[in-house]
Design a protein around this nucleic acid. Sequence first.
DNA 1: TATGAATGAGGTTTCATTCAT
DNA 2: CATGAATGAAACCTCATTCAT
Lengths: 187, 187, 187, 187
Amino acid sequence: MRHSKTDLAEQIFMATDRLMAKEGLHHLSMHKLAKEANVAAGTIYLYFKNKEELLEQFARRLFAIFMAAVEKDLDESHSFFEQYRQMWWNIWRFLQDNPTMLSNLNQYELLPNLAEICKSVDHSCWDNFCQRAKAAGELVELPNDILFQLGLKTAITIASGSKFLKVELTTEILESVIERTWRAIQK
Amino acid sequence: MRHSKTDLAEQIFMATDRLMAKEGLHHLSMHKLAKEANVAAGTIYLYFKNKEELLEQFARRLFAIFMAAVEKDLDESHSFFEQYRQMWWNIWRFLQDNPTMLSNLNQYELLPNLAEICKSVDHSCWDNFCQRAKAAGELVELPNDILFQLGLKTAITIASGSKFLKVELTTEILESVIERTWRAIQK
Amino acid sequence: MRHSKTDLAEQIFMATDRLMAKEGLHHLSMHKLAKEANVAAGTIYLYFKNKEELLEQFARRLFAIFMAAVEKDLDESHSFFEQYRQMWWNIWRFLQDNPTMLSNLNQYELLPNLAEICKSVDHSCWDNFCQRAKAAGELVELPNDILFQLGLKTAITIASGSKFLKVELTTEILESVIERTWRAIQK
Amino acid sequence: MRHSKTDLAEQIFMATDRLMAKEGLHHLSMHKLAKEANVAAGTIYLYFKNKEELLEQFARRLFAIFMAAVEKDLDESHSFFEQYRQMWWNIWRFLQDNPTMLSNLNQYELLPNLAEICKSVDHSCWDNFCQRAKAAGELVELPNDILFQLGLKTAITIASGSKFLKVELTTEILESVIERTWRAIQK
DNA sequence: TATGAATGAGGTTTCATTCAT
DNA sequence: CATGAATGAAACCTCATTCAT
């Protein structure tokens, strides 16, 4: 069967995600990947120069998808807390809806060049938010990266660690977390 | 030369840490490890059943070292905030003093069975602290794990991300972070 | 664009020659060849059954070109020595004028079935010359192949080795070689 | 079974020679080689960094063996012609006694870096001979390399081509060749 | 206890060839 | 005729592990 160029690359990306969730990054072999993606081993090399480049592009795609999810339904006319809350829930729901991504989160951090990729991509969403909220005097004057660690990052770490938790995470608890992390970064 | 059992195992652990910092976990081969540790390839198998078990024990050791560092100079007669502050700085300084550990932080999360190891080890220090602080009505009633994510975990994530930051992290900024994360978890 | 059958085959042959000179026979892949010849990979298989056959026909073409060059301006009315001298210079100049062929000389000998090809092609030129010269009592009675090795072959080996020589090869030296190899095969 | 270091390297060299004779250089795979040498694939890489280096060392070894054979029983007190004759026969007999080498001769010329290897090795034997014979006024004043092409090289080319010859090469014919090539290079 | 040569399964990548368009 | 995406066998090479010493 013939595929459009994006079709097959996407097919390979999705297979990568599934395999990473199933067996982990360091058990990801090109042969297994080919099998999972229902293509021949050589075919992958028509779309990616080598394994390293495949993983790098995979990371870029992830990051883009993630950033898009964060911005979803964001309304700048709402209060800054509401906007923060929206982003926090966006991340949370996105990770709940994409369990493979959730279980891959640790692995993603190991992808080659992830740091460079993150920097090269536009952080516009969060940076934008921080700039506006600081200008309005609602956010403390700390570097944006740190504000991210204290704020939205908790949505990731808690989602990531939740499968090991004994207690169930109720909406009440999460709303409490949102409110308290907001307290940590507000002026 | 003769070695006591612990000697050689420790030698191998240290070599593991150096190699992970230098080339990353997924380039860590038993041969390179043997060379770095100045032992023969076969010798490693006298101390560890296989690579997986070596890495698991390596993770256990890491965790123990880390937990010991967190507890250092902890004085229960101080105020809860002071105790929290002490632990936060303990983590921060420990990571500054152990740059290989810092640059390995991401890698550690990929070690096989890390999650199980963490759970199996006694979290006594933090759990203890939480229990006492909650009893004293100073800490909000949330699961201890979540409190950890909102609190001390920030010392790790910020230290880990600091090499990518443009701004320099002054003591003032860090004290601000401590104070604000405390605000997030206090009653 | 449309091509006559010979056009495209010749285009492929020329691309083969260029690539062999540039990267060597054992780095010659059908894809690179297609690219160099500005045709699609599959197109080559319309003209040649497979790689082996392409190389074999390539060798035949080479041999034919070479033989034609040897015979050039050959005048049977001249003395046998003059005819020999003419052929020797023909070979020499041909190799100087076709540097890719010169740098491919070693490679050619590796082409599949070269030996069979050489035998199957008509040696008429040299055999002819030998026969006539022997009849005239000017050439020693040795097998023609051996006479070739002692005589004209030196034009090839010296041209081939000349790039490694420290000394420059003057016309004087070459004339001396011609005269002396003639001495080796004359009666 | 255990081997001394040279044992196994030599075993691999000999297997290389056999396989080259049987299937040609460009069909020589490391797996087939391992099988032919009765070792595991990985074992070869304990002795040679990679295929290229294996072939280069193989070429060096060949060249050394060949040079040693040429010098055999060479007696400087004999006449120059006798010495020349001795070397010619040395080459001839050596190639008859080592049929794989003979059938590999073409292949050898394709070995990577052969040119560099030849230059880096001492040509002392032939250069020596030429120098002495020129000083004695017995050899024509031409570059030594050219004298080699006109002289001893014929032993190689004729041996190499002899399997394609229809006529049998008698001692008489070969002696004639020796005498005539000597004629070509003598003063 | 310690060694390190040897193994061979499995890794990534290349490439001659096919076939639907 | 001509294309070039797709194939998958086979290439080179690595590496966790064993075992005779």
